[in-house]
């Protein structure tokens, strides 16, 4: 507890120094200098947009916006932790996996919190962080991949392609959570729970029980966890690569 308090005091000192440097570097004084944060927040919303630009009625998170930001966060010495806010219906498999792989490859601690919904390709993103949380009322839908606009799988090759795309998701999720590939596949193909489809809807605690998410929590819980992970990383030497994970 006392260690945490010391950590927060250090943060306040650091924030003061940063305001000082920005005045020096840019030669201008901000009208209302907001206290700079050692935590950055990445908002992943709507559809995760991949190689195809989606029609404008979709709210989207674009990978070309998110991926360089993750690199910048990893490199910026004044950023010590990353909070991922997830409220997304899914989206492009490769874009989702790309974001997940970047997140899992960061040395800085990251905490994800699923709010509202974290469905389909949001599942690998949620589990890719150092620690994952879900709001008590948030849901995660786990279902098989579908081919856009195709109700019938016509050829063996189509089936195998779909199967291999699905395996990529299952592999990532099982490697970054407590959920085994078998258990995840079972959730994916469960019948009788979804209206038009096969799959499972996990609400809050159920996602934790399934081994996908680490804990049910709120904003303050996720920030507390992130500060805890930052304190551990500081103790182990701030810039040591791969210090936490």
């Amino acid at each position: 507890m006392s260690e945490e308090e010391i950590g927060q005091n250090q943060d306040a000192d650091k924030a003061g120094q940063q305001v000082g440097t920005s005045i020096k570097e840019f030669g201008q004084v901000a009208t209302a200098p907001a206290p700079s944060s050692n935590l950055h927040v990445l908002n992943i919303i709507g559809q995760i947009e991949g190689h195809t630009v989606l029609p404008p009625q979709n709210k989207t998170t674009k990978y070309e916006h998110v991926m360089p930001q993750l690199v910048a966060i990893e490199q910026n010495p004044s950023i010590e932790g990353l909070l991922i806010l997830l409220n997304t219906v899914g989206g492009d498999v490769e874009a989702g996996l790309a974001i997940s792989e970047l997140l899992s490859g960061m040395t800085k601690p990251s905490v994800s919190i699923v709010l509202g919904g974290g469905h389909s390709i949001a599942v690998p993103i949620a589990v890719s962080c150092s620690y994952s949380m879900i709001a008590p009322t948030a849901t995660m839908t786990i279902h098989p991949l579908r081919l856009a606009g195709q109700l019938v799988i016509g050829t063996q090759q189509t089936y195998e392609y779909l199967e291999r795309m699905q395996e990529r998701v299952i592999k990532f999720v099982s490697e970054h959570s407590r959920c085994t590939p078998e258990a995840f596949r079972e959730l994916m193909f469960k019948t009788g729970e979804l209206l038009r489809d096969v799959g499972t809807v996990l609400v809050g605690e159920a996602a934790v029980k399934a081994g996908l998410i680490d804990a049910v929590g709120t904003l303050s819980d996720s920030l507390r966890k992130l500060n805890e992970l930052i304190a551990i990383r500081r103790r182990m030497g701030t810039n040591a690569e791969g210090a936490v994970h």
């Binding site: 991949g50 989606l54 029609p55 404008p56 009625q57 498999v93 390709i121 279902h143 856009a148």
Partner: peptide
């Protein structure tokens, strides 16, 4: 390839407003 709970017809809806200008002269696609 999309992996989403949204029905495909909702993702690629019929409404196509790309490049159309709104009443105040602003472009609708950000």
């Amino acid at each position: 390839m999309l992996y989403t709970i949204m029905p495909i017809e909702m993702v690629f809806g019929a409404e196509q407003s790309v490049g159309q200008n709104g009443v105040d002269g602003t472009v609708r696609v950000p």
